[in-house]
Amino acid sequence: MNGIPLEQGLIVAGLLFALGAAGVLIRRDVLFILLSLEIMINAAGLAFVTAGAMWLQPDGQVMFVFILAVAAVEVAVGLALVLWLYHWFRTLDVDRASRMRG
């Protein structure tokens, strides 16, 4: 152990994840929802790295690299969809886009 309470790293990860989930629930602006999703992905990465540091294995950081790839793809596609949403509705409010067509 390197002098850092690693269990509390997991607690911090859990708190960050809870904050991200709360952000998804309370915000209706789609950009903020995407940012909250990023917070949650980041918290998951923090949990992985903490677990990897706990057992002194590189696997946690390997998983963090994969999580980074997933986050990058998610942001790219998500932001393209945000541009479509703005194009159709002239707003970023997701409640305006709550109805399906067809």
Partner: peptide
């Protein structure tokens, strides 16, 4: 910074 303190400089 937390990663760095945990001994994960690459992350």
């Amino acid at each position: 910074v937390i990663f760095l303190l945990m001994g994960a400089p690459f992350a």
